[in-house]
Design a protein around this nucleic acid. Sequence first.
DNA 1: CTGTTAGCGCCTTCAT
DNA 2: ATGAAGGCGCTAACAG
Lengths: 338, 338
Amino acid sequence: MVQGIEDVARAAGVSTATVSRALRGLPNVSAATRERVRSAALALGYVASPSAASLASGRMRTIGLLTPWVNRWFFANVIEGAERTLRAVGFDALLYTFDISREQPRREVDPGVLRRRVDGTLVVGMPLRDAEVQALEDLGQPLAFVGTGRDDHLTVRLDDHAAGTRATEHLVALGHRAIGHVSGTPDDHHSWSPPNARRAGWADALGAAGSPPLPGWEINGNFDVPGGRASTHTLLDAHPELTAVFAASDEMAMGVILAARDRGLRVPEDLSVIGIDGHDLGELVDLTTVSQDASGQGAQAAALLLELIAGGGSALQVIHPTRLVVRGSTGSPRSGDA
Amino acid sequence: MVQGIEDVARAAGVSTATVSRALRGLPNVSAATRERVRSAALALGYVASPSAASLASGRMRTIGLLTPWVNRWFFANVIEGAERTLRAVGFDALLYTFDISREQPRREVDPGVLRRRVDGTLVVGMPLRDAEVQALEDLGQPLAFVGTGRDDHLTVRLDDHAAGTRATEHLVALGHRAIGHVSGTPDDHHSWSPPNARRAGWADALGAAGSPPLPGWEINGNFDVPGGRASTHTLLDAHPELTAVFAASDEMAMGVILAARDRGLRVPEDLSVIGIDGHDLGELVDLTTVSQDASGQGAQAAALLLELIAGGGSALQVIHPTRLVVRGSTGSPRSGDA
DNA sequence: CTGTTAGCGCCTTCAT
DNA sequence: ATGAAGGCGCTAACAG
């Protein structure tokens, strides 16, 4: 037995229009009437049907969350932050995942599914093709990005180039010059893509130190632990001269550490390792990292997206700070032997 | 310029009812007509408004996902599995998180928000009060649980008692008798609650080994890494005789390992550690564990919930298997010294 | 197999 | 400050 707006109207002795206004906090309702309606609604356990409200108003009070994974550190934390912000204002978070772990092309983003279903879209750490961005744009709804920028769209992210530089400079300061790089997915040729920017930061920092990287010093680690591990083996097989590895994410850095163990290399005596993220479990392997606030980025992106939906303008690019967290996985090169 | 069902009807030269039937794959539409409608819809980029469809049909094609966290291993993986299953049949996943990390009581589950918004609810690893279960039940919609059972509701979970027994027996087989237990949240007095069942499994296995646990051998670790770490310190301060610790989750087990390091204890020589989960990063700390398939549980629970929504009956309790994964964090007691 | 016709439950102008 | 009434876009009986 579901109560409708008419039941509330009858109980409160007003019209349905007044109930609607009163319950949504719109102006032009006397305090007394509002209170009467509120308690009637409460007594009846009335909650407006979102479908009917959306159909009539055109507003969905829902945000689409597009993300490749929910079970990786960065993504899980961004989602957590975004969801909390949305929930606080009564918005729902609709989850759309796009597994891009396989080499096969991921499924296309279908704007048709989003149309009339969400008021805006938050793209979390997912590289979109230009056509996909255009299609989302054509929805006429606000669009925001977290962790992977489009210089022409609202984006909350790091200064990835600086993060890469910072990590590399830490190693350089310890005396390393032969520093390898385990990068993320390469299927993305824009300079603003995080893996590319982090890679450039690494190369530039090494260049500035007077020893630009050799071409074979970098490899794709697929942004996960197994990828970091496997690619490190390949990297070190070809370049045993490397004394340190900078991984573009903590999860890959953990893979690097596992690979080092596989090979009987001590960390950091034989190989220094640094990542980017500030993963909760980094302390477990004593991982030095450039940390970021993922849930904060999610929360802020959601807040800015809500602003856009409400019609407010807002900043185009928000850069979140990073912090170098020095732990035991980095040290001077070959301090253990000659 | 959004296309409506009438535009498609006009373009295909049929009525809106036929368009609706054709596009939804209902019977009683000729193949030719269906094809004509399909291509017209495709050409116009038509996608039905979910609000309107829901309002008219009463079906939402949406599942509510209730969970305490999205950024912990078990939960993230269950959600991932559930989302994939739902997406495959065109259902949406609406995320509702309830932070229960603080000591303060979490926010109440509000059935009003779910009513007329979802077709069913999946409760992921969240202990619900009886009143909350009743309220959800009163929605008249299917309800399913993952990871935390209600014997009177559809539940996909482990045999938690067996998992606790198995972990403990592994330690007993290695020669341990003084085995401590870091448990989950205790705010739950039902025997079917996973932390309680795992604890009972531990106590029973120790009893069967002829040395039932002392009262002070167990402590609450709050199901997270910091909790496992802090509680281990408390535990070992009071009970230095313990040679092994069984933690009710891998994340807490990782905390136990960190605490051991804090105290200068070697793992496993001075302290053996075992967890439950099969966390992706368990290998990093060489953690022995009783592993489970979280995303598989999420996928299956979602599938069963969809069955219930479709009106099919289904099993009430599904028990997923576990597997003992022996790594380096467990060994014979005090093998390092006398 | 296809068309006609009521709603689904609420929001929102337009009056008053 | 409140009420009356027309949709919002689609689905589901019921005809045919």
